[in-house]
């Protein structure tokens, strides 16, 4: 039986904009989970911010449902900047 709670860990790196999932830690409470995550996942100065979430609190898509779930967005290429070709003079936009 697991004695401590399993927490998923998300780290925002110095240059990264969003928190990224990096793995999990065991801890008795959220505060300890943050510290354990700090010691485990940012030993090499990898992060500026950490989130921890009890693993049980995460609802995930089943990867086998990948197609119905994500493919509908695949053809909406107009959501991506590269879809819009601008004249060279203003192409830095």
């Amino acid at each position: 039986m697991a004695e401590w709670t399993l927490f998923e860990v998300f780290v925002r790196s110095k240059h990264g904009l969003n928190h990224k999932h990096v793995g999990s830690v065991h801890a008795a409470d959220a505060e300890m989970a943050l510290e354990n995550a700090r010691d485990l996942y940012t030993r090499r100065n990898e992060g500026v911010s950490i989130w921890v979430v009890p693993s049980a609190a995460i609802t995930a898509t089943a990867s086998d449902e990948k197609e119905p779930f994500f493919d509908p967005s695949e053809d909406k290429i107009y959501r991506h900047a590269s879809f819009y070709q601008l004249p060279k003079e203003v192409d830095q936009m």
């Binding site: 039986m1 697991a2 004695e3 399993l6 793995g23 999990s24 830690v25 065991h26 485990l40 030993r43």
Partner: peptide, 20 residues
């Protein structure tokens, strides 16, 4: 110790329990 934890963490995604 950290690598042990990374690996246990990967193992737990398979439904196994670290303490067990």
């Amino acid at each position: 110790a950290g690598h042990g934890l990374y690996l246990y963490s990967a193992m737990e995604t398979l439904g196994a329990d670290r303490d067990e």
